[in-house]
């Protein structure tokens, strides 16, 4: 098994993509006034009534697995009793699995 890996080809590829993007950047509008309506974002529909935060972006995933998350949060409650209990449990599982 050989990994064929040529850093020169990767560098040439990278420079090519960089020049294409730079070409797109250069062919834009040169004269525009800052901080007027020309630089604001364009909403093509209803503007959102309430500010939805970005950190809820995976809300659907979280909702589907809610039971599993609640189960895990009930086990690990962040005090040292639970930590030591889980450590001893883990080492007993290791011992049982190794001595088979």
């Amino acid at each position: 098994m050989q990994i064929i890996w040529q850093p020169k080809i990767a560098l040439i590829f990278f420079l090519l993509i960089f020049f294409i993007i730079y070409f797109f950047y250069l062919s834009g509008e040169k004269k525009y006034k800052k901080d007027t309506f020309q630089t604001m974002a364009y909403f093509s529909g209803k503007t959102p009534s309430q500010n939805i935060k970005l950190q809820n972006i995976y809300w659907g995933f979280f909702e589907d697995f809610k039971k599993l998350y609640m189960f895990l949060a009930k086990i690990q409650k962040e005090n040292s009793n639970d930590y030591i209990f889980l450590f001893i449990l883990g080492s007993i599982i290791f011992l049982l699995a190794l001595s088979l």
């Binding site: 450590f87 883990g90 080492s91 290791f94 011992l95 190794l98 001595s99």
Partner: peptide
Amino acid sequence: DKVALSLIASSLLL
């Protein structure tokens, strides 16, 4: 020996 091995391994994995 296996008991000793598992105890050492558990604390290093901790």
